[in-house]
Design a protein around this nucleic acid. Structure first.
Length: 425
RNA sequence: GUGAGCGUAGCUCAAUGGUAGAGCUCCGGACUGUGGCUCCGGCCGUUGUGGGUUCGAGUCCCAUCGCUCACCCCA
């Protein structure tokens, strides 16, 4: 027997009927984001490696060890996109979108790639739904995009969501805090893990969100980032919070929330969910004030989020509108002599099925008989079975049977089609 | 990159170190103007892969690959 293949490690096939839920979630995103004036952008699945190295940050895990990087036949170093914010900003700069009316509101839907060991809620190819607001004014942009994010999740049936919020300050605040934190931790270096000790030099802020109980204890007496904020950053965060309050958007401040991408400044946020094991964040985001400038564009304020679609689907409420079952195709079955006129019978069936399709009714023919026909209808989710026999052919009618109520009527063709259409808006 | 658990048919699972099985699914037939069937028959395995121990390995050992979970980190 020939070798059998399987999807590469960390990737998976999405199969029906689950794909219908994915499509419904994405449709909801397009609709809700559209309500806020966001339009879709589709960037390449791969970019110059340098874009992510500079944009996401050399010190991040993503760049340090998780990139799918390859050299093409022209000797270029390319990388499968591990996230979509840097590509969107690249496109903003490349296409001179700073000359469009500001701010520019964009959203994206698509696969991202990170070379990691798979586990619950983590894949090498995963999917994100995200949005970026570029060229905005600052705190009010942050609040706007959070409002949209929460509305989207609520429309999917998530209730009582809590947004975890924090500020990491601007560059000046962070420099000040980095020093304060280092001075505090340095004397207690022995109590830190190897990783954390390394971060003491490279990225001390990252030590804050450690999960180790022992390190949490060490951190209990650490200086607060809030105390190192510049007046500007303090004001920024205050305005975000007051906007959210004004909009009635529930949130909680998590002083330890630090995100792993270098480009974030000031506002950062996360939405977490139960039922995902250790990978509990379904959405993360924040503001970035210098990314676009670092990519060669004008100084531009940006804020955005990315939702992990795979994780979102994992915890999607059972009663989510996105799970609404889409009806299967109407089954068309020949009866009596019609069924026995093998060749002409089949062609006649196809003509009838095509007629239904032309009227916008999904339909397939079936050669199943008796109980098997209805078993098939159940499995496909078909709301109706249409019977065509000699009598129907003679008088130009279809017998339409409702699978769930078992009610059956013989109707003139046009009336039958009108009846069937009611189930397929 | 590190650690742990698990790999038997498409799915769910059996098989004391002694002939690889069952149910479901799928396909074919009986049945052909009506219900979730019934009956008959059939396909499906180098027991993830490769070595080793043994008279004999699905079972024990080693390696490898894969899956799962966790660490790290993130969505």
């Amino acid at each position: 027997m020939a070798k059998r293949f399987q999807a590469p490690k960390g990737t998976r096939d999405l199969l029906p009927p689950e794909t219908a839920v994915w499509a419904a979630v994405e449709d909801t995103a397009r609709r809700v984001f559209g309500l806020y004036g966001y339009r879709e952008i589709r960037t390449p699945l791969f970019e110059e490696t340098e874009l992510f190295a500079r944009g996401v940050g050399e010190g991040t895990d993503i760049v340090g060890k998780e990139m799918y990087t390859f050299t093409d036949k022209g000797g270029r170093s390319l990388t499968l996109r591990p996230e979509n914010t840097a590509p969107v900003c690249r496109a903003y700069v490349e296409h001179g979108m700073d000359r469009q009316p500001q701010p520019v509101r964009l959203f994206y839907v698509g696969p991202q790639f990170r070379y990691e060991r798979p586990q619950k809620g983590r894949f090498r190819q995963f999917h994100q739904i995200g949005a970026e607001l570029l060229g905005g004014k600052g705190p009010e942009s942050d609040a706007e995009i959070l409002l949209m994010l929460v509305r989207f999740l609520e429309e999917l049936g998530f209730l009582k969501l809590q947004v975890l919020l924090n500020t990491v300050g601007d560059a000046e605040s962070r420099t000040a805090y980095r020093e304060a934190l280092r001075s505090y931790l340095l004397p207690m270096k022995e109590r830190l893990s190897e990783d954390s000790r390394r971060r003491l030099d490279s990225n001390p802020l990252r030590i804050l969100d450690t999960k180790s109980a022992d390190e949490q204890e060490v951190l209990a007496g650490a200086p607060a980032l809030a105390d190192s904020l510049t007046p500007d950053s303090r004001d920024h965060f205050g305005r975000v919070l007051s906007s959210l309050d004004a909009f009635g958007l529930r949130h909680s401040i998590e002083p330890r929330l630090v995100r792993g991408l270098d480009y974030y400044t000031n506002t950062v946020f996360e939405i977490v969910s139960e039922g995902l094991g250790a990978q509990n964040a379904i959405c993360g985001g924040g503001a970035y004030e210098s990314l676009i400038a670092e990519l060669g564009g004008p100084a531009t304020y940006g804020v955005g989020f990315a939702i992990g679609e795979d994780r979102l689907l994992e915890v999607l409420p059972a009663d989510s509108p996105a799970r609404r079952v889409v009806p299967g195709p109407v089954l068309v079955a020949a009866m009596g002599n019609v069924a026995e006129q093998v060749v002409e019978g089949v062609r006649g069936m196809v003509r009838i099925v095509e007629r239904l399709r032309s009227a916008g009714i999904p339909a397939i023919e079936s050669s199943a008989r008796g109980g098997r026909l209805f078993e098939l209808a159940e499995r496909l989710g078909s709301p109706f079975v249409v019977f065509i026999g000699d009598e129907e052919l003679a008088e130009g009618s279809y017998s339409v049977r409702n699978v769930s109520t078992r009610a059956q009527e013989r109707l003139p063709v046009e009336a039958a089609i009108a009846r069937l259409r009611q189930s397929f808006p």
